[in-house]
């Protein structure tokens, strides 16, 4: 049958739901093993962070969509956490294979990494439900419905007080780690990526400016690259 925006949205939801309904709300045994292999076990921090973000996300979702939607926000958050755990485990498996190490203590105790990964998982869930779109984008399922546009990207960055530049870092690894994402969701993430690269990362206060300054101060800018590289 021909692909329509409604059919595409339904496919995205069904696919994601079937993946996430078969998994639990807690880290899998394998993911726990990665936590236990760390020099500093991140388990308690991971769980505490999720508890805090659960409150913040549900409240902000309710404010944006409507007070009666706090429950809906909680449901989205639950699905987002499941996806966060699945993708984190897949990323760690891939890193273990690539680096031949099992101790990811530094990464797994990095709050920005967890926040970015969780934000990306929630962005995927909201995009699957047609809640996150782009006001000037080509696939705004909400049409004139203000509720559907209030949680549009980069709304999630404000909720978690996350720098766009840090969110950008997880997108490609997320898509690699979860290869069954529907093409509409991949397209959505790519649009987020483009928005960050073209606009959001250059806003006042972005950590990108400090990084560029550090690069310049370290003399990296003076090094001339060969045409091949």
């Amino acid at each position: 049958p021909p692909q329509t925006p409604i059919r595409a949205a339904m496919t995205s939801i069904q696919q994601l739901r079937s993946d996430l309904l078969s998994t639990g709300d807690q880290p899998s045994t394998n993911l726990y093993s990665y936590f236990e292999n760390c020099t500093v076990d991140p388990t308690q921090d991971v769980l505490k962070r999720l508890e805090t973000f659960d409150q913040e996300f549900s409240q902000s979702f309710g404010q944006a969509v409507g007070p009666r939607c706090i429950v809906l926000g909680k449901q989205r958050f639950t699905l987002g956490v499941r996806l966060y755990y699945i993708v984190m485990e897949a990323m760690l498996k891939s890193e273990e294979k690539r680096l031949s190490v099992q101790n990811f203590s530094k990464l797994l105790n990095d709050s920005t990494f967890h926040t970015s990964l969780l934000a990306c998982a929630l962005e995927v869930v909201m995009a699957a439900y047609g809640e996150s779109c782009f006001k000037a984008g080509g696939y705004n399922h909400g049409g004139g419905d203000s509720a559907a546009t209030d949680v549009c990207f980069p709304w999630i960055l404000d909720v978690f007080n996350l720098a766009a530049f840090d969110f950008y870092k997880v997108i490609e690894s997320f898509i690699k780690a979860y290869p069954t994402l529907s093409k509409d969701i991949v397209k959505h993430l790519e649009t987020c990526e483009n928005l960050i690269m073209e606009r959001i990362a250059w806003r006042t206060g972005s950590p990108l400016f400090e990084l560029l300054k550090q690069e310049h101060d370290s003399g990296a800018a003076e090094q001339v690259e060969t045409p091949a590289s």
Partner: peptide
């Protein structure tokens, strides 16, 4: 199908992106 452009090299994993390598 939608073809995402993967730009990272093989030596650039999530650990490097968060300076945790």
């Amino acid at each position: 199908s939608h073809d995402y452009h993967f730009g990272l090299e093989d030596h650039e994993g999530i650990s490097e992106l968060f300076d945790c390598d």
